[in-house]
Design a protein around this nucleic acid. Sequence first.
DNA 1: GATGAAAAGTGCGCACC
DNA 2: GGTGCGCACTTTTCATC
Lengths: 157, 157
Amino acid sequence: MTDALDSLDWSVIRALEEDGRRPFREIGRALGVSEATIRARVRRMQESGLLRIVAFTDPARVQSPYQLALVVMRVEPSRHEAIVEALSRHPEVSYVSTVMGRADILAEVLVRDQKQLWEIVSRKIRVIEGVVDAETMLIVEVHKLRYVLPNGEAAES
Amino acid sequence: MTDALDSLDWSVIRALEEDGRRPFREIGRALGVSEATIRARVRRMQESGLLRIVAFTDPARVQSPYQLALVVMRVEPSRHEAIVEALSRHPEVSYVSTVMGRADILAEVLVRDQKQLWEIVSRKIRVIEGVVDAETMLIVEVHKLRYVLPNGEAAES
DNA sequence: GATGAAAAGTGCGCACC
DNA sequence: GGTGCGCACTTTTCATC
């Protein structure tokens, strides 16, 4: 399913990385192809899940106060998948990944305050069956965050 | 500069979280206001840096092979800011945050393969002056990733 | 700030290559 | 896959409230 991207695809991606609402016609003009071609490329990439065009907000400006935390977890291997699913179901959990190293699973939690953080971590996460250990780090400030890939120019905040 | 967002702003954000290219006119119709109002709201939020509408790609589909890793770092307090800056300058470093807990700084690295990962971690990160300890976890799979806030419905992948 | 109206520009489907 | 065309719709500007 990983169709190879040609240079036109990459050019389109880079254009939309800068401005997700840039008109297809304008992109086509800049790249010397028709608008229908741009539209078809974008649709194909979107349908394959490769490309997404969405709005997102800056937590620091939108929600105040707010609290981000990373929960570093050790789990029983046999319960790994079930725990991933349980974590993912929580709306307060904004990120879940499987890792190798000191931990087995990483989970990021986004909540209003430390009281809610405690409730989520202690009453929702640590009680999941198979969770051996869960260590929390408070995220004080996010300095760099890139939403795109090294191949293209990065959109950072 | 953190202008309070009213319910109309939130409705607009939620609409654009689902589809960043949804016509303002359509959003206006759905919310019972004029299209010009929607555009004015979006422009204001974009100019303040609160809202961004961009395309992003799924690393797993776009770059193969690729390797993500989280580097959990202890640093000398007096060198904290300098280290954050040094990390942020590297294009392979996709995320940098200051945390409280077991670690002082978290850094995510996005590279092609494990050889490049080793080069970045050992030759670029661990050698930065003031880095006391750096522990690497290989990110095997990202199960959940939300780019937006708890207030609205989440856009997940 | 919000609105409606006119002009310019865009998205979309389609027939064709 | 790519393209050009036609039409409906959207964006943009601006005068108005």
